[in-house]
Amino acid sequence: MLHIVNKSPLDRNSLEACVAAAQAGGALLLIEDGVYAATRGNTAATALKSALDRLTVYVLAPDLAARGMSDALIEGVRLVDYGGFVDLVAEHSTCQSWL
């Protein structure tokens, strides 16, 4: 299953709820304000590190660049562009957006 989170981890609990529910082997895609979770020094980085142990974590690169955070991406997270986003959705039979 592909999980998508688009809310800042310090504004909403979407990421926390997603990581708590997501089953090992799934994929997590961070988009829009969700990308802040994958930036160095963010207090949510610990939650994300635990997600990295069980899930493949992706960040939408255009959203990261828009926020001036490209240099702060934490290790182990994969960057995708819009084409990669479409591929991820196509590869997974189900998709859950944690709005």
Partner: peptide, 18 residues
């Protein structure tokens, strides 16, 4: 809170067309 992100320099919005 997240408002501090408004001032984070290095913004590049070309790809999101905003």
């Amino acid at each position: 809170d997240d408002g501090v992100y408004q001032l984070k320099k290095g913004v590049d919005t070309k790809a999101i067309e905003v």
